[in-house]
């Protein structure tokens, strides 16, 4: 969720500058960022679900092995 907040901050910056500079490219970029954010959220949450199903925890300090 913090990643989503960070991406939103970037999006606000891009939209504000696109309004200021009268340039539409910033808003195009915002659309791409939203698409990437959706993909990233889906994959990240899938990883969390898979991890929880195998280890019964979501504490990141215990996510230290690459295979089991």
């Amino acid at each position: 969720m913090s990643i989503e907040l960070i991406l939103n901050a970037v999006n606000i910056n891009l939209v504000a500058l696109s309004d200021q500079l009268q340039n539409l490219v910033g808003q195009v970029f915002v659309v791409f960022i939203i698409a990437v954010a959706a993909a990233e959220a889906a994959v990240g949450l899938g990883i969390i679900i898979a991890f929880y199903r195998n280890k019964e925890t979501v504490n990141i300090d215990e996510m230290s092995l690459m295979r089991w």
């Binding site: 959706a38 993909a39 990233e40 889906a42 994959v43 949450l45 899938g46 679900i49 199903r53 195998n54």
Partner: peptide
């Protein structure tokens, strides 16, 4: 490219959420 990324992410999420990973 973004649409392909979304497709790959969708397939990846489905594979990750499978029962017996």
């Amino acid at each position: 490219v973004a649409s392909m990324l979304l497709l790959v992410a969708m397939i990846g999420a489905i594979v990750l959420a499978k029962k017996n990973l």
